[in-house]
Simulated assay, not measured.
Amino acid sequence: MAPVSKPRLVATDLDGTLVRSDGSVSDYTRDVLLEVERRGVPVVFVTGRPLRWAEEVFGYVGEHGLAIVSNGGLVWDVERSAPHLVRPIDQAVALETCRLIREAVPGSAFAVETVTGIGLEPGFMERFPPPPDSHRGALEELFDAPAVKLLARHEELAPQEYWDAAEAAVGDRVTITWSSSSTLLEISAADVTKASTLALLCADLGVDAADVIAFGDMPNDLPMLGWAGTSYAMADAHPTVTATADHVAPGHDDDGVARVLAGVFGL
């Protein structure tokens, strides 16, 4: 499938896609994104990152409007610095999901992402230090606000092995995916994905799926890449992503998103 000549919306993942391995966004990429915005085409970040990490890169497209974070669990209004749409996991469903996963895979530990922060079980081993005011406690205590993402970690299994076991245990109660290099499952409410939330946002903006160009690199991007009219996997993407996407872009360390957009928009 040939890329659309003039997309009406750009949807891009962050880590492994837009953001370089060192956590930076190049001046070239920033300039391209800003020029696309100046031409009236929204650039929407669609990320698994929680809000506190996504905010670090909002400035790369200015006060550009809306960002989809936590794999679709939250749409954030960047200009207003307020939620635009929250798609939380029902607490009872989340607790049952944790119980079923822990029974199927002993050694599982959980954390809960909310709009305001993260709560963690004592046994949940973070790879990056959580905010100093993060609460650690029993699972039932962590749902003090609507949960936009549930995290499940295992220290011994491989990511795919853990994902398969968890999905077999919980069925369609929730949506499970992963995007980390470690064994960390990212769990959303049933049918909440990057794609379903992006579809809601595009409907509000009057943009059809056929007019969206999307970029990603990991399994949590698969629904979005399958939904968008034109999709690109990064050169170093997970094999399942490369198999799903229409095209392959240069790698994230080579400004792949920006280079494709420069060609599409004739920059």
Rank of each mutant, 00 (worst) to 15 (best):
A2Q: 08
P3L: 11
V4C: 09
P7F: 03
P7V: 05
R8I: 04
R8M: 08
V10N: 01
A11V: 03
D13P: 06
D15Q: 07
D15N: 08
G16C: 04
G16F: 09
G16D: 05
T17A: 04
L18Y: 01
R20W: 00
D22S: 05
S24P: 05
S24H: 00
S26V: 02
S26W: 00
D27H: 06
D27M: 12
Y28K: 10
Y28P: 06
Y28L: 15
T29H: 02
R30P: 00
R30T: 02
R30C: 01
D31W: 03
L33T: 00
L34S: 05
L34I: 03
L34P: 00
V36M: 07
E37V: 12
E37G: 12
R38D: 15
G40F: 01
P42E: 10
V44Y: 02
V44P: 02
V44S: 04
V46Q: 10
V46H: 07
G48Y: 01
R49V: 13
P50D: 12
P50W: 03
W53Q: 09
A54T: 08
V57Q: 09
V57H: 09
V57D: 14
F58G: 14
V61E: 12
V61W: 09
G62I: 02
E63Y: 06
E63F: 06
H64A: 15
L66A: 14
A67L: 14
V69Y: 06
S70A: 15
N71V: 03
G73A: 10
V75H: 09
V75G: 03
V78G: 04
S81Q: 11
S81A: 12
A82I: 04
P83C: 07
P83V: 00
H84Y: 12
L85G: 11
V86C: 13
P88N: 11
P88V: 12
I89C: 14
I89N: 13
D90F: 07
Q91H: 11
A92G: 14
V93N: 14
V93K: 12
E96D: 09
R99C: 12
L100K: 11
I101M: 07
I101H: 05
A104M: 12
A104T: 11
P106V: 14
F110Q: 02
A111F: 01
V112Y: 04
V112Q: 11
V112W: 02
T114V: 08
V115M: 01
V115Q: 00
